[in-house]
């Protein structure tokens, strides 16, 4: 611990990631602004669903913008940046949603990036069974992370870990990414041990939650693909474009 401080210090990496993290109200304002522009939509699609798809697209754009500003990531050549994002885009979207619920959500409803609240009973009655089960599964993870007391420091570090979570053999710059993966893991371990000494193995439990984030993201991609096959997605949807790209 630093002298004259009120408690244990926060690893430098996490402090840097906190600086890069946009405020929720800034993200909300930008996305709400984008959604107010009329879309060249499909009149055959229900307006709320079309709006949700555009909202997800805009959230994706925010996430890429964040990644571009991240240390290490911004040093990589574009080919490596693309490989990393093609690997983790859906996990980052899922984790963004999850953390919003942990941080700002209320029991019995989900909070969208626009600030709108949707009652779970409405999801149950209006959404199809696939989306409903996805939302419920996500809510279980929200409860778990709530119980673990996931904080903003851990959130930004876990997001960074997700961004870099690819075997470096698929990249051109092995050493830069491997080094960053190790530093991020060490920072998270250090932080959880210092700040939650009573929690025992918070570090391990958080990493296990990332396994569930990955599983949820696979289920989310399957849902998107199902909607795409049923010709239910808006034209030029960015997530479908990401889904259809060849992955490593």
């Amino acid at each position: 611990p630093e002298p004259f401080s009120g408690g244990p210090s926060v690893p430098e990496l996490i402090l840097q990631l906190l600086q890069l993290e946009p405020e929720e109200d800034q993200v909300r304002a930008r996305i709400v602004g984008c959604l107010q522009e009329p879309a060249k939509g499909r009149p055959d699609q229900p307006a709320p669903f079309s709006l949700l798809c555009r909202m997800a697209d805009q959230t994706f754009i925010s996430i890429v913008d964040w990644a571009r500003r991240c240390m290490v990531f911004k040093e990589l050549e574009v080919a490596d940046q693309m490989t990393l994002l093609q690997n983790c885009w859906s996990e980052l979207l899922v984790f963004d949603h999850i953390y919003r619920q942990v941080q700002y959500g209320k029991e019995g409803s989900i909070l969208l990036v626009t600030g709108q609240e949707v009652e779970l009973s409405v999801v149950a009655s209006q959404a199809g069974s696939l989306l409903h089960s996805l939302v419920l599964r996500a809510q279980e993870l929200v409860l778990q992370l709530h119980a673990l007391q996931l904080d903003r420091q851990e959130f930004v570090c876990l997001k960074f870990l997700i961004l870099l979570s690819l075997d470096v053999k698929f990249l051109n710059n092995h050493s830069l990414v491997k080094d960053a993966q190790e530093k991020a893991n060490a920072a998270l371990l250090d932080y959880t041990l210092c700040h939650y000494p009573h929690c025992g193995d918070k570090f391990q439990q958080l990493l296990l939650c990332l396994v569930e984030v990955r599983a949820l993201s696979v289920q989310a991609k399957e849902y998107l693909y199902h909607k795409h096959l049923g010709n239910e997605m808006p034209r030029n949807n960015l997530l479908i474009e990401m889904l259809q790209a060849k992955q490593t």
Binding site: M82, L85, N237, L238, I240, E241
Partner: peptide, 23 residues
């Protein structure tokens, strides 16, 4: 949906390229 070379999504190329504007 359009794709860049080698299965790269064009949107990702646009967002990551300093010289192109995102849609």
């Amino acid at each position: 949906p359009c794709q860049g070379p080698v299965g790269r999504p064009a949107i990702l190329q646009a967002l990551l390229s300093p010289s192109l504007r995102a849609r």
